[in-house]
Simulated assay, not measured.
Amino acid sequence: MSDFLVVGGGVIGMMTTLQLADAGHSVTLLERGQCGREASWAGGGIVSPLYPWRYSAPISRLSTWSEGFYPELALRLLEETGIDPEYRQKGLFYLRVDDEVRAMDWAREVGKPLERVSGDFLYAKEPEAAPGCRGALWMPTLGSIRNPRLTRALRRRLAEMDRVSLREGCEVTGLRLAGGRISGVDTMEGTVGGEQVIVCGGAWAAGLLAPLGVSLSVRPVKGQMILFKAPPGLVSRVVLMDGRYVIPRADGRVLAGSTLEEAGFDKSVSGEARESLWHSATRIVPALAECEVEHHWAGLRPGSPDGVPFIGALPGVDNLHVNAGHYRNGLVLAPASTHLLVDELLGREPIVDPAPYRLAGRVTA
């Protein structure tokens, strides 16, 4: 029996497993499909909430810590696996922001570099950005990561660790509760045990806990994105406008996203969404209209009422823990939220105050 049993092999589950294994513990990771192929793969990879000044302090605290950690993580994974997660810290432009005063106040309060720049400054750095802008907000320290490569690198690293048992295609069908503890996890391949059980099931987390009589306010929220095959250098930085964004990759490809849809667990794509995303992207960078749309996909975010994730022990069960409900910011918050839970599991000093994320008072049973 492993010291820890992690349910869910997205970026949250894999980072949790990595940190526990780094600390010398044995970990079994169960994933119903392939690790990193759900929301962690489908997102854009901006290492910040889209408009960070519009989020609550608990989200900002996790985001700030994670932003500082990603460069180190990307270098480590490249060295250990040979897979480059392509962390790029080239900054971000916000176009047509209608709450600029609030943004600047937030930046001063948290000490984040954010400034109003002229149109000349914008077009010197991004000549193909939406024409006619007299200015923009510029955050020079913001980075992005190529999340499919990040998840591939995490998976490879875990597969090579002696203390990790990586079990893909292993769907969890139930949690066995006996004497106030989880005595085992039922799967399609039989029952699996772990001294401590951690549910990192993303949009599926609520369904995993429901048979225990636990109501976790996490639901699937579909997001669709498209990928342009653009020439390298057409766009160099993340650009946001009117709630939509374009994200460049090192090979020239440009992601555009994303939709917000309440559609349950439906991951189908639609022509209507594709057209909407195409029009948004070509308004942000008109030259994208001449580029082929190479791919169109959808993912399911783990939506929660206020976007603040549920992190910590489940009240009333001695050995069951949860890390879920990150909504649009799973990749952004992953390093900090997993570190915070591992701090709790191992009795370490927490990186931030854990109180806002605890399940007590936020779940019903």
Rank of each mutant, 00 (worst) to 15 (best):
S2K: 07
V6R: 06
T17K: 05
V27M: 05
V27I: 06
V27H: 03
L30K: 13
E31Y: 08
C35K: 01
A39Q: 14
G44W: 00
Y51T: 15
P52V: 11
G68Y: 10
P71G: 07
P71K: 05
A74L: 07
E80H: 10
G82K: 09
I83C: 06
D84A: 08
D84E: 07
E86G: 01
Q89P: 02
L95E: 10
R96M: 09
V97M: 13
D99M: 04
D99I: 03
E100P: 06
M104Q: 15
P113N: 06
E115D: 09
V117Y: 03
G119H: 00
Y123V: 02
Y123Q: 02
Y123A: 02
A124N: 07
P127L: 02
A129Y: 02
A130V: 00
A136R: 02
P140T: 05
T141I: 11
R146M: 08
P148A: 10
R149P: 00
T151N: 15
R156T: 14
E171N: 01
V172Y: 08
L177G: 09
A178G: 14
R181I: 12
I182G: 12
D186L: 13
G190K: 09
G193T: 14
I198Y: 05
I198H: 04
A203L: 06
A203Y: 07
W204E: 08
L208E: 00
P211V: 12
G213F: 05
S215R: 15
S215D: 15
S217D: 13
S217V: 00
V218N: 07
V221K: 13
V221N: 09
K229E: 15
L234S: 01
V239G: 03
M241S: 11
D251R: 09
G252C: 08
G252E: 12
L255F: 13
L255C: 01
S258M: 07
F265D: 10
S270H: 03
E275R: 13
R283L: 06
P286M: 11
L288Y: 05
A289T: 04
E294W: 09
G299H: 09
G299P: 08
G303T: 08
V308C: 10
V308Y: 05
G312Q: 12
G312C: 11
L314S: 08
G316P: 10
G316V: 08
Y327F: 14
G330E: 07
L331P: 04
V332S: 00
V332C: 12
L341H: 08
E344Q: 15
E344D: 12
L346R: 13
L346N: 10
P354T: 11
P354Y: 12
G361K: 12
T364H: 11
